[in-house]
Write a protein that binds this DNA or RNA. Structure first.
Lengths: 230, 230
DNA sequence: TTGACAAACAAACGTTTGTTTGAGTACGAT
DNA sequence: ATCGTACTCAAACAAACGTTTGTTTGTCAA
């Protein structure tokens, strides 16, 4: 689909990437304090944790910072690319490029949503000042896009709307392993993800004020997999 | 407002409650692995961490379990009380009692949202099987309420809607300390909370189909329930 | 006073943590 | 061959971790 959302290479090209991949999975699953550098080293294929300090002299915190920056940049550049393509310019019904792009990247990199959700909850001295700095461009971008969309919201409500959309889209993937135990179906399975994609489209259309999404012929809402009948 | 949402007593009546209060604040702020039993003991007024094991022989994990159960039960009983009062019975526009009740309890206990958000992300062997067990009643309750409300959603979409509403309502308070650095205003201040309360009311009204403020009269989305395949 | 019990204390347990040191290996350039 | 660089490794470090042990204090009943 979208060539922008490039998944991680199955085989990391460098040891630095292998370390970042291993750290991303571990940090997303257990958080900064729940991961030991020995685990990261072992997952990356190193037999000794001391080798990590050659690639990241800053130690564990530097690895964490690099993982976070890489993940947030991926999302930010994706949204920025959709905006440069001219999506959602005064037309609230055309939010699909943004949603599909984010969806694709969250599916391709299954640890990203949980990693960012965790980092948002963190209040360590480092995350407290690094997270806002890394998220500022993405946040400003989102508010500007919602501003141009022209929904039924006042300017003072746009920050609330931006935060709500973030929680709406990322929350499903971040809490997938918990939802798996609550729902009758694995939320990461193909049909569940497809259903969530349609759900988000409808929910976002309702929220940002797409007056009649199904009125326009060929739009995404009416023609889903739900029309499948035996 | 709602007398149901009773805040924690300012002065804990027992040492056990003092430990739980201290642990709730610490666990919400730094997570299970980011908190030491020495910190909890000190915050609870104990000069020695060994005293914790007298009140909680199960150690750190038992304290964590008790904190989680207390928090989840508070939310569950609140929603159950609203349901017994007969709110939202076939009338999607009457969701305010639920929203205001949850809002009041999340304001009165500022660590609850972050604590639950963190626990949802956890995948330790304990949380992996305890969280679903503790959340099952609340989840079933939420889905049943949404079912009775009769919104524009199909039954297969109700789990997605329930999860979305949870993320929508709890996410704002859970990420408050991050939003504080991104927004021009403290999200926990009185005007910001009031604005968020109105925002959530409007958003929920849009999502569960309360009179469809901008939608054309004809139930564009809700038409596809049974009569769709006529 | 005596016995009993809950509660808080000090000290130490063994383990794991992040990090550092120094020696060793592979390899292209000189 | 020899140097220099990039990289990995084993071993060890101090600090912090959760937990246990043994003792002391306070309190109520007999």
């Amino acid at each position: 689909m979208s060539a922008v959302a490039a998944p991680l290479p199955q085989t990391p090209v460098s040891m630095r990437d292998a370390i970042l991949d291993a750290a991303e999975a571990r940090f997303a699953g257990a958080g900064f304090d729940g991961v030991s550098v020995r685990e990261i080293a072992a997952d990356a294929g190193l037999k000794n944790q001391a080798s990590l300090y050659h690639h990241f002299p800053g130690g564990k915190q530097a690895i964490y910072a690099a993982v976070l920056a890489r993940g947030i940049d991926a999302i930010t550049e994706l949204v920025a690319a959709s905006e440069r393509a001219g999506s959602l310019r005064g037309d609230p019904a055309a939010a699909s490029p943004y949603l599909d792009g984010v969806f694709d990247v969250l599916i391709a990199r299954p640890h990203l949503a949980r990693l960012m959700h965790r980092a948002a909850l963190d209040d360590s001295p480092y995350a407290r000042d690094a997270m806002p700095r890394m998220l500022q461009p993405l946040y400003a971008l989102g508010v500007r896009i919602l501003q141009d969309a022209g929904g039924p919201w006042q300017p003072s409500e746009l920050p609330h709307l931006a935060a709500a959309l973030y929680h709406l889209i990322f929350g499903y993937f971040a809490d997938a392993s918990l939802l798996q135990a609550l729902l009758p179906e694995d939320p990461r399975s193909a049909p569940a993800v497809a259903r969530q994609r349609l759900f988000i489209r409808k929910a976002v259309a309702l929220l940002i004020g797409a007056a009649a999404p199904v009125a326009a012929p060929g739009t995404m809402l009416g023609a889903g997999k739900e029309s499948h009948r035996a």
